[in-house]
């Protein structure tokens, strides 16, 4: 299963060096939860404040579900940020 992982703002430094535009392609051999995925990239869970899958916000309680990520999904993560 292929997905795209994007880490933004103060999480950018956790991306591998070959990442482009804050994104990496991730090959998953088996379905994993969002929490499992962000643990693999050493993103502190409390820093994964805004988690969007295909642009839709994922509540913290959904992030342990192993079937939440599907083939081709784009998951984008931010620490607490704001602006305007």
């Amino acid at each position: 299963m292929n997905i795209t992982l994007k880490l933004y703002a103060n999480l950018s430094y956790l991306l591998p060096v070959h990442a482009k535009h804050n994104a990496v392609q991730v090959d998953l051999l088996e379905p994993i939860s969002i929490h499992h995925l962000i643990d693999l990239y050493h993103v502190p869970r409390e820093q994964a404040h805004l988690v969007l899958v295909n642009g839709v916000f994922i509540n913290p309680e959904e992030r342990d579900q192993v079937d939440r990520l599907k083939q081709g999904d784009v998951i984008a993560i931010w620490p607490p940020v704001a602006g305007g």
Binding site: A9, N10, P80, V81
Partner: peptide, 13 residues
Amino acid sequence: GLPKYGTQVLMNV
């Protein structure tokens, strides 16, 4: 967040 990225952090969000 704001000191480092300013309001521009929102562009990608």
